[in-house]
Amino acid sequence: MIKIGFLLSYDYNYIFTALDQIYQEADFIVMSYDIDGKTWAGNSVEIPQSFFDEVREYDVANKIRFYGDHFFVSGHTAMELETRQRNMMAKVMGNGGWHMQIDSDEYAYDFKKLAYFLRKNSFLLRNPAKTPATFLVNFVTLFKRDKDGFYVIAPYHEACYLVTNTPEYLKARVTNSDKNYFLNYNLIHQSWARSEEEILQKIKNWGHKDDFNVDGFFEKWKNLSEENFHLYSDFHPLDGKSWSSIEFVGSRNIQEFIEVFQGEHPQMEIINPLSSTKRIKLFLKSLF
């Protein structure tokens, strides 16, 4: 099984674009949300009943389960609470299968290629304690948008922990496993390509809000324009280096961006990062 978990909060409306990419190939989908209407920072957030009704209408194959719980706990950092929620959701998603936790603004385009790879390697699910595997993919991070398109971080080398057969999380999506493998697969992350109001809401409530100078970074985001985006280099907010440059992709909205980007950067057949010898050894391990 391919199980997908979403964390619902202030950017819940983005989830329909995310669902459009993965729904057909997913076997089970969990959407977790705070029943007290709190973010990890303890601020209030309202997810209207109409949203839940719309998701139920979307869910024609009855794959989606809502999971509400108390995810804000006073005295903990936002990152601690994010990690806690991911682990709690993983338990609700249940033992077995491939676990994939993605955010509402992450779009796994041409997901059938990743699903095919995971099902082809389902022997790793027989006894995951003996054959742990976590797969990382490439983030395509959207940094800002204007009326003509999106400014995108390039090249697409930022790593994202995405899929695992041992869903025990240490920090955000980083798993409690040292068996990590990179896949040649792109995951579009709308991330910073939002309105100014949404950006302020994001940086005050997300898991990384205490990890860097969010006010200074907000000013850097705010100041980017068509005239100066080519001057931005080595400016990742956490390490200050890994975002090398910015490129522009013309498109009217996020749906058109996905189509344009997929046309220019189609998902390739996924190359198995495990050698033939390694796969044989893991296959034999999975039998006993």
Score class of each variant (00 low, 15 high):
86 R>T: 05
158 E>I: 13
114 L>V: 05
115 A>D: 10
158 E>C: 02
139 F>H: 15
45 V>S: 02
170 L>G: 06
164 T>K: 00
79 M>A: 12
121 N>W: 08
114 L>P: 07
154 A>V: 11
90 A>G: 07
75 G>M: 10
175 T>E: 06
56 R>A: 14
117 F>T: 05
166 T>E: 07
91 K>M: 11
164 T>L: 03
93 M>I: 15
139 F>R: 13
150 F>A: 14
135 F>M: 14
132 P>I: 09
170 L>I: 14
161 Y>G: 11
88 M>I: 11
95 N>C: 06
150 F>T: 15
83 T>R: 02
61 A>R: 15
167 P>H: 01
101 Q>P: 08
93 M>F: 08
86 R>A: 04
93 M>D: 10
120 K>E: 12
135 F>A: 13
92 V>T: 09
70 H>T: 07
169 Y>P: 04
177 S>W: 10
77 T>P: 08
164 T>N: 01
105 D>V: 11
42 G>I: 02
60 V>E: 15
81 L>K: 13
54 E>T: 09
111 F>R: 05
53 D>L: 13
45 V>E: 06
53 D>M: 10
43 N>R: 09
46 E>A: 05
174 V>E: 07
62 N>C: 14
67 Y>S: 02
91 K>G: 00
166 T>W: 04
115 A>S: 13
140 V>T: 11
38 K>R: 05
124 L>D: 14
50 S>G: 03
54 E>L: 05
50 S>P: 02
69 D>W: 00
135 F>E: 15
144 K>F: 01
169 Y>L: 02
127 N>W: 09
149 G>Y: 06
182 F>V: 01
133 A>T: 13
87 N>V: 02
176 N>R: 03
179 K>V: 06
152 V>H: 12
140 V>S: 07
87 N>F: 01
84 R>Y: 11
63 K>S: 01
84 R>T: 00
46 E>I: 04
152 V>G: 12
148 D>A: 07
101 Q>E: 06
164 T>F: 05
156 Y>H: 12
176 N>C: 03
118 L>T: 08
102 I>E: 03
74 S>M: 05
81 L>A: 07
82 E>V: 07
135 F>C: 14
128 P>E: 10
154 A>W: 03
84 R>N: 04
125 L>E: 15
114 L>G: 03
99 H>F: 04
153 I>Y: 02
47 I>F: 05
149 G>C: 10
83 T>V: 01
110 D>Y: 01
59 D>M: 07
133 A>W: 12
157 H>K: 11
179 K>I: 01
81 L>R: 14
88 M>N: 01
141 T>F: 05
175 T>K: 00
73 V>Q: 10
159 A>P: 08
61 A>M: 15
165 N>S: 14
102 I>Y: 02
121 N>K: 02
180 N>V: 15
